[in-house]
Amino acid sequence: MSLDAATVRRIARLARIRVDDAEVETLQSELNAILGYVEQLAEVNVEGITPLSGGAQMALRHRPDQLSDGGIAEQILANAPDRVGNFFAVPKVVE
């Protein structure tokens, strides 16, 4: 399976990364090299195998759904590129 230029553009769009036309060709050949390499997994028989999602050898814990922290709006907003009062500010979304 080989990616064409349109697919590379579609992936970039899904990943929210702007790519210009000059980059598409490079990305296309690099991504295809990686996909070509991982193709070898096709030969492995995985019938009846349960997929392994994590490295932990245990089930995830439960915890009570309770507030444990808060009241630190100023700390949270301190790194914001743009803010209005106690809100993160972004370009206008709705006209």
């Binding site: 929210r16 702007r18 949270i76 790194n79 914001a80 590129p81 743009d82 370009p91 206008k92």
Partner: peptide, 19 residues
Amino acid sequence: DGVRFGAREDGHDLIDMYE
């Protein structure tokens, strides 16, 4: 994504800003 922390590049709308 340039909203809560880290660097931001301005864009003409939200998606453009992300990209």
